[in-house]
Computed example of a mutant assay.
Amino acid sequence: MYTTDDPRAALGGSGVASGIAAPEYHDFSGSGRRTEITRAQNVVLAYTRPSAGESLGKGEFRFEHVLLLVHHSSAAEVVAGDGKVSLRGQGMIVIPPGISEIVSLGEGDLVRLIQPDEADWASRARNAASYAEPHPRVTPLTPWPAPAEDRLRFYPLADVPEDPKRFGRIFRTRAFMVNFLAPQEGPRDPSKLSPHHHDDFEQISLAVEGEYVHHIRTPWTTDSRAWREDDHERAGSPSVTVIPPPTVHTSAAIAAGRNQLIDIFSPPRKDFSAQPGWVLNEEEYPEDVR
C-alpha cells in the first residue's frame, strides 16, 4: 500500500490498512485451573477439564451457544427446557436460548462457545482487556438466519466418515463455524505448509492434542513503527491461538504422536459455506444471503 500523497496510490491494488492486531497465544497445558476463559472479537471460549458427574452450572442464555466434546473420552448430558440430549466421544451440541445445564459424563474436556454479549461472559476472559475496544479489521457478528425451530441439536463425529474431497468436518450455527480438522500422526511435512490470510475475520485455532508451531506474519503498513517480527510460536495442548486479519499464517504439528486442531470462526465463513457438502448441518441452518 502507499500513503495518499504517493502518486502510486492511483494504481489501485489491494492495500493493508493500519490497526492490525497482534496474534494472541493462550496455552492452558500448564494451568491448574479447572476452567480457562479466553475470547476473540465475536466469541468467548470456556475450556473446562471436568470430572465425571460434574455440572458446569445452570444458566440462562439470550442466544444459542455451543458445547464441543473435544476428546474421545469426553461425554456430556445437556438439559434445555423440555429437551435432553447426551453425547459420548468427539462432537458438538448446539444449545438453544433459555435456561440450560451441562453435566459431564466423562473425564474428557469440554469447550463452550458463547457470544460476547451474553451477560458477564466477556468480562471473565483472561484477555478481556484486548477487546476493550472492537478490533477495526474484524467484521462484527450479525447472526445468520434462524433455524426453523430452537431446540437441542447434537452432531457426533463418529457418524462422519473422512472424505478427501471435503476440508475437515464443519458445522455451523447462527453465530459460529466449527471445523474439526483430521488428526495428524506425527509432525507435519515442512514442505507442505499452507500459508494464507483472511481479509476481515479472525481464526481461533484450538489445539486439543499434541503440539504445534503457529507461524504468523504481520504485513507491513506505511508506518514502520508498527512492523512486527514474524512469529513462530510453539503451543502445547490445550491451547488457543487467536489469528487476526490480515496476517499470513499456517500451523505445523510437531509432536511425535497424535495432533489435532479445531478451527473456530465467527460469524460463519461464507466461502466454506459455498462449497457443496462441506458444511455437514447446512440443511438445519439457513445461509446468510446478505
Results as ranks from 00 to 15, higher is better:
133 E>R: 14
148 A>S: 13
165 K>S: 14
148 A>E: 14
120 D>P: 01
127 N>C: 03
174 R>D: 02
182 A>I: 12
122 A>L: 00
171 F>R: 03
128 A>R: 10
169 R>K: 15
182 A>S: 15
143 P>D: 07
123 S>I: 06
117 D>C: 02
132 A>F: 01
120 D>L: 08
152 L>D: 06
151 R>D: 04
164 P>M: 07
144 W>V: 05
146 A>S: 13
178 V>G: 07
159 D>Q: 12
163 D>W: 05
145 P>S: 05
172 R>T: 10
154 F>L: 15
133 E>F: 03
171 F>M: 07
152 L>F: 14
135 H>T: 07
153 R>V: 05
165 K>T: 14
143 P>L: 14
160 V>M: 13
175 A>C: 11
167 F>W: 11
146 A>E: 14
159 D>L: 14
162 E>S: 12
131 Y>I: 01
140 P>W: 08
167 F>S: 11
171 F>V: 05
178 V>M: 11
139 T>I: 15
153 R>Q: 15
137 R>T: 03
176 F>H: 14
119 A>T: 14
135 H>K: 13
167 F>K: 11
118 E>L: 00
158 A>Y: 09
181 L>W: 07
145 P>L: 05
123 S>D: 13
117 D>F: 11
133 E>N: 13
155 Y>G: 04
156 P>H: 04
168 G>Y: 06
151 R>G: 08
149 E>T: 15
169 R>D: 09
121 W>S: 02
141 L>N: 15
123 S>F: 03
159 D>S: 12
154 F>A: 06
120 D>S: 08
165 K>V: 07
129 A>T: 09
124 R>Y: 03
176 F>S: 09
116 P>A: 10
131 Y>F: 15
129 A>W: 04
179 N>G: 12
141 L>D: 06
172 R>Q: 13
122 A>M: 00
175 A>I: 02
175 A>Y: 06
128 A>Y: 04
118 E>C: 00
181 L>C: 11
124 R>H: 07
162 E>H: 09
127 N>G: 06
169 R>T: 13
125 A>H: 02
179 N>V: 08
129 A>Q: 13
152 L>V: 08
120 D>I: 01
122 A>T: 00
165 K>D: 10
151 R>F: 09
145 P>Y: 07
132 A>C: 02
125 A>G: 08
150 D>G: 02
146 A>M: 05
123 S>G: 07
129 A>D: 14
154 F>K: 12
138 V>T: 15
143 P>R: 15
126 R>F: 03
134 P>M: 00
152 L>M: 12
132 A>I: 02
131 Y>L: 09
180 F>D: 09
117 D>Q: 15
168 G>T: 04
133 E>S: 14
141 L>A: 05
141 L>H: 09
170 I>R: 12
154 F>R: 13
124 R>T: 03
118 E>W: 00
156 P>S: 03
116 P>T: 04
175 A>P: 00
151 R>W: 08
153 R>H: 11
133 E>Y: 02
121 W>D: 00
134 P>Q: 02
182 A>H: 12
139 T>A: 15
159 D>I: 02
136 P>N: 06
122 A>Q: 00
141 L>E: 08
158 A>E: 14
163 D>M: 12
133 E>C: 06
150 D>A: 14
120 D>M: 05
180 F>E: 10
